[in-house]
Each structure stands twice: as structure tokens, then as C-alpha cells.
């Protein structure tokens, strides 16, 4: 689910995009604004911490939606045992069984 969704290390940041005209922020980054104007967006680094909007547990993993201050909602697996709506979560890296490095959000 987070495969291919870009992030940068040192410091760890997810990469989104921003429409300079409207201020709208998108994740994953998209080349064009959402309004159909074909206006190009600009790349931005997203805040590493946000608040949990909702969560569930499915097939042994916790899933969550995290709202970041830029005005974008991230959906991903979360590292937690007792998620709490409204609590703070931060982005972390994890190494998958395949050896690939990816990211999740974990309770602060």
C-alpha cells in the first residue's frame, strides 16, 4: 500500500506536491493540479507528524489515516497496539521481509 510512495531520509520525510495557486497539497505527489487546469504542481516535503483520523485492525495489522498539518490525509499501516483517534503519530521507516525499506506511522 505504501509501495512506491516516495519518501526521503535524513531527515525522514514523505514527498508530496503542492498546487501553488490554491495551496492544495497532495500525497502521493501528482504532477498536475486536481481541477483539470493542467497546472503543474511543485514538490514539497511533508511534516513528519500528524494526528490519527481513524483506524482499524485487519489481518493482524493496524491501518490508519493520519492528517498532516499541510492539509493532506495519509493512509497506511500504523505501528501501535491501541490506536487512539486524535493522538499524534510520526513517520518511521521499516524494513520489510523482502529487505525493501518503506515507511509507516507510529504512535509518538
Amino acid at each position: 500500500m505504501t509501495d512506491g510512495k516516495p519518501f526521503r531520509k535524513d531527515p525522514l520525510r514523505l514527498i508530496g506536491s503542492r498546487d501553488a495557486q490554491t495551496g492544495q497539497v497532495y500525497f502521493p505527489p501528482r504532477p498536475l493540479a486536481v481541477d483539470g487546469s493542467l497546472r503543474a504542481t511543485e514538490e514539497i516535503e511533508l511534516s513528519p507528524q500528524g494526528t490519527l483520523y481513524s483506524w482499524t485492525r485487519f489481518a493482524g495489522a493496524f491501518y490508519g489515516q493520519i492528517d498532516l498539518p499541510e492539509g493532506v490525509r495519509i493512509q497506511c499501516i500504523i505501528e501501535d497496539e491501541a490506536p487512539e483517534i486524535g493522538a499524534a503519530y510520526k513517520v518511521v521507516t521499516v524494513t520489510e521481509p523482502s529487505g525493501d525499506e518503506t515507511w509507516r506511522f507510529a504512535r509518538v
Binding site: 492544495q24 497539497v25 497532495y26 500525497f27 502521493p28 501528482r30 486536481v34 481541477d35 483520523y53 489515516q65 492528517d67 492539509g71 493532506v72 490525509r73 495519509i74 493512509q75
Partner: peptide, 8 residues
């Protein structure tokens, strides 16, 4: 697009 809560 519905705004900041929109997971695209």
C-alpha cells in the same frame, strides 16, 4: 476533490 481530507 473534496479538500484536505481527500485521500486521492
Amino acid at each position: 476533490y473534496s479538500g484536505p481530507d481527500h485521500v486521492i
